[in-house]
Amino acid sequence: MSEPANDLSCRELVEVITDYFDGSMSDAERARFDRHLGECTGCTRVVQQFRETIEASGRLSEDQVSDEQREAMRDVFRRWRATTATSEQRSSGP
Protein backbone atom coordinates (compact mmCIF):
# COMPACT_ATOMS: atom_id res chain seq x y z
CA MET A 1 0.00 0.00 0.00
CA SER A 2 1.99 2.95 -1.28
CA GLU A 3 -0.53 5.75 -0.64
CA PRO A 4 -2.23 4.88 2.64
CA ALA A 5 -3.90 8.27 3.14
CA ASN A 6 -5.52 8.01 -0.25
CA ASP A 7 -6.62 4.42 -0.05
CA LEU A 8 -10.04 3.00 0.43
CA SER A 9 -10.51 0.76 3.46
CA CYS A 10 -12.52 -2.45 3.20
CA ARG A 11 -15.17 -0.88 5.42
CA GLU A 12 -15.55 1.99 2.93
CA LEU A 13 -15.34 -0.16 -0.16
CA VAL A 14 -18.32 -2.37 0.72
CA GLU A 15 -20.54 0.74 0.87
CA VAL A 16 -19.84 1.76 -2.72
CA ILE A 17 -20.14 -1.55 -4.58
CA THR A 18 -23.47 -0.49 -6.13
CA ASP A 19 -21.92 2.83 -7.23
CA TYR A 20 -19.16 0.79 -8.85
CA PHE A 21 -21.59 -1.51 -10.68
CA ASP A 22 -23.77 1.39 -11.82
CA GLY A 23 -20.84 3.28 -13.24
CA SER A 24 -21.58 6.34 -11.13
CA MET A 25 -17.98 6.78 -9.92
CA SER A 26 -15.43 9.24 -11.21
CA ASP A 27 -12.40 7.77 -12.99
CA ALA A 28 -10.26 8.47 -9.94
CA GLU A 29 -12.71 6.73 -7.59
CA ARG A 30 -12.96 3.75 -9.90
CA ALA A 31 -9.18 3.49 -10.11
CA ARG A 32 -8.95 3.58 -6.33
CA PHE A 33 -11.62 0.87 -6.07
CA ASP A 34 -9.85 -1.32 -8.63
CA ARG A 35 -6.51 -0.81 -6.92
CA HIS A 36 -7.97 -1.98 -3.62
CA LEU A 37 -9.56 -5.04 -5.24
CA GLY A 38 -6.26 -5.96 -6.79
CA GLU A 39 -4.75 -6.26 -3.33
CA CYS A 40 -7.64 -7.55 -1.23
CA THR A 41 -9.02 -11.09 -1.26
CA GLY A 42 -11.86 -10.27 1.18
CA CYS A 43 -13.24 -7.40 -0.89
CA THR A 44 -12.82 -9.33 -4.15
CA ARG A 45 -14.96 -12.08 -2.63
CA VAL A 46 -17.63 -9.67 -1.38
CA VAL A 47 -17.86 -7.94 -4.76
CA GLN A 48 -18.28 -11.38 -6.32
CA GLN A 49 -20.94 -12.20 -3.70
CA PHE A 50 -22.83 -9.05 -4.69
CA ARG A 51 -22.75 -10.20 -8.32
CA GLU A 52 -24.09 -13.59 -7.26
CA THR A 53 -26.75 -11.94 -5.11
CA ILE A 54 -27.94 -9.90 -8.10
CA GLU A 55 -27.95 -13.03 -10.22
CA ALA A 56 -29.99 -14.89 -7.60
CA SER A 57 -32.54 -12.04 -7.46
CA GLY A 58 -32.72 -12.21 -11.25
CA ARG A 59 -33.94 -15.79 -10.99
CA LEU A 60 -37.02 -14.81 -9.01
CA SER A 61 -40.22 -14.21 -10.87
CA GLU A 62 -42.64 -11.32 -10.60
CA ASP A 63 -45.99 -11.94 -8.89
CA GLN A 64 -48.86 -13.07 -11.08
CA VAL A 65 -51.98 -10.99 -11.41
CA SER A 66 -55.02 -12.83 -10.00
CA ASP A 67 -57.76 -13.90 -12.42
CA GLU A 68 -60.20 -11.74 -10.52
CA GLN A 69 -58.13 -8.58 -10.91
CA ARG A 70 -57.31 -9.44 -14.48
CA GLU A 71 -61.00 -9.65 -15.40
CA ALA A 72 -61.77 -6.48 -13.43
CA MET A 73 -59.18 -4.61 -15.52
CA ARG A 74 -60.64 -6.06 -18.69
CA ASP A 75 -64.01 -4.59 -17.62
CA VAL A 76 -62.38 -1.21 -17.01
CA PHE A 77 -60.99 -1.38 -20.55
CA ARG A 78 -64.28 -2.42 -22.17
CA ARG A 79 -66.27 0.26 -20.37
CA TRP A 80 -63.73 2.85 -21.46
CA ARG A 81 -63.85 1.65 -25.06
CA ALA A 82 -67.64 1.71 -25.04
CA THR A 83 -67.73 5.34 -23.88
CA THR A 84 -65.11 6.52 -26.38
CA ALA A 85 -66.96 4.72 -29.19
CA THR A 86 -70.17 6.52 -28.22
CA SER A 87 -68.54 9.93 -27.99
CA GLU A 88 -66.85 9.40 -31.37
CA GLN A 89 -70.23 8.56 -32.90
CA ARG A 90 -71.68 11.65 -31.32
CA SER A 91 -68.93 13.93 -32.55
CA SER A 92 -68.98 12.53 -36.07
CA GLY A 93 -72.80 12.51 -36.24
CA PRO A 94 -74.96 15.11 -38.01
Binding site: S9, C10, R11, E12, C40, T41, G42, C43, R45, V46, Q48, Q49, E52
Partner: peptide, 13 residues
Protein backbone atom coordinates in the same frame (compact mmCIF):
# COMPACT_ATOMS: atom_id res chain seq x y z
CA UNK B 1 -5.03 -2.46 9.53
CA UNK B 2 -7.95 -0.39 10.84
CA UNK B 3 -10.98 -0.60 8.52
CA UNK B 4 -9.80 -3.85 6.94
CA UNK B 5 -11.47 -7.23 7.36
CA UNK B 6 -11.02 -8.80 10.77
CA UNK B 7 -11.89 -12.16 9.23
CA UNK B 8 -11.74 -12.62 5.48
CA UNK B 9 -15.23 -13.40 4.04
CA UNK B 10 -15.81 -16.88 2.64
CA UNK B 11 -15.42 -17.64 -1.04
CA UNK B 12 -18.80 -18.59 -2.52
CA UNK B 13 -17.16 -19.86 -5.65
Amino acid sequence: WAGHWSTVPADWR
